[in-house]
């Protein structure tokens, strides 16, 4: 990986870092922080789902583990919040590895893998909802004690920069994966696992590394969520909606790309806010938009927004009709399915 590879990351993150200097309204900052946390978790999903092609429908299992690890370590054992966050990352990686070990070793792929991850997340949700350690259904409230050493800041902008820093770090990590031998093996497993095995790729090991990494990143997002909102319960942290949200962003933005999850999270939440502004107090209007965008993206923009942009760039914007023909030609091998 050269410095040149990192230029787009640095430029975009640099621009994003200037935002709090322009907008200071706290609802806007809240929105941005939440969106970045989703983007971070989605980046985690993208490592496994995007590069590895293993669609998880239960990434809440990692998000929740991160959130609960951060909160429980502070509340029950008085561990420092930063150390708690680090432990959350480790816990996420461990849970990822364990789930991966169980399911990949049994050879679960595709829809079956999606279902088993969903079930794991549900099991965690039910346990967290009942166990005293996790505060049961009442959830956990992290006490307000605003000190940088506690990972609580008086200024929302500081937390924004912190999350942005983590997002940037994962962008670099993803870029590295893309360029590395590990990344190439992961993509090979995604495209054709049997062929990859035949070429000597240890597909189980590659997938395990991917899910552990994926779990760790998503757990980091969960830990930050707990630390920003200072409250979690089982239906937030391990809820089905988080799993959906973390997979929506990369799919919409561009699955298996470096910037896809961030672009997707920004687009979805931006659209959601716009819908709320227009439609007023109709409940669920933003989610109707999410679902519609998902169906449209799968139907018309299979590489997500980034894929769409790339296609436009390759063909020149003015030349859409002939390119539409070449696309149908490419679809033929799949069309009968």
């Amino acid at each position: 990986m050269t410095v040149r590879d990192l230029i787009p990351v640095l430029v975009l993150v640099g621009l994003a870092a200037l935002l709090p200097l322009v907008v200071t309204a706290s609802p806007v900052l809240n929105f941005l922080v939440f969106m970045l946390i989703v983007a971070l978790g989605a980046q985690g999903w993208n490592i496994l789902g995007g590069f590895g092609g293993q669609f998880s429908f239960g990434h809440a299992a990692f998000f929740g583990t991160g959130a609960y690890a951060t909160a429980i370590l502070q509340l029950r054992w008085g561990v420092n919040a930063w150390a708690g966050l680090a432990a959350a990352v480790a816990a996420g990686g461990a849970v990822g590895w364990a789930i991966g070990f169980l399911s990949f070793r049994s050879g679960l792929r595709g829809s079956y893998f999606a279902l088993v991850t969903l079930a794991f997340a549900e099991v965690f949700r039910i346990l967290a909802n009942a166990a005293p350690l996790t505060g049961g259904a009442a959830g956990l409230l992290i006490g307000l004690d605003v000190r940088p050493a506690n990972l609580q800041f008086a200024d929302r902008a500081v937390f924004y920069w912190l999350v942005l820093g983590f997002v940037a770090a994962v962008l670099v990590l993803t870029r590295w994966i893309q360029r590395s031998r590990f990344g190439a093996q992961l993509v090979a497993v995604r495209e054709n696992e049997d062929a990859a095995k035949a070429l000597g790729v240890d597909s189980l090991r590659v997938k395990l590394r991917a899910i552990a990494l994926s779990g760790a990143v998503t757990a980091l997002a969960g830990g930050l969520y707990a630390q920003y909102f200072l409250y979690i319960d089982a239906n937030i942290a391990y809820g089905g909606w988080i799993s959906v949200e973390l997979l929506l962003a990369p799919i919409i933005g561009g699955v298996g790309t470096v910037f896809g999850p961030v672009v997707g999270a920004l687009t979805l939440h931006g659209l959601g806010e716009v819908a709320k502004q227009f439609a007023g107090r109709i409940p669920g209007i933003d989610l109707i938009v999410f679902g519609t965008v998902l169906v449209l993206a799968v139907a018309f923009a299979r590489g997500g927004i980034l894929g769409l942009l790339e296609r436009l760039r390759d063909r020149g914007v003015g030349m859409l009709p002939p390119s539409a023909k070449s696309r149908t030609a490419k679809e033929v091998p799949n069309a009968g399915r």
């Binding site: 669609f55 999606a114 669920g284």
Partner: peptide, 25 residues
């Protein structure tokens, strides 16, 4: 879904989100 399994999962997921929230609205 263009006949791809992963796409079908996503399309039906999208549909379920839309249906559920139309009912909610």
């Amino acid at each position: 879904s263009h006949g791809d399994d992963g796409n079908i999962l996503l399309v039906t997921l999208g549909l379920s989100i839309v249906l559920e929230n139309v009912l909610l609205a």
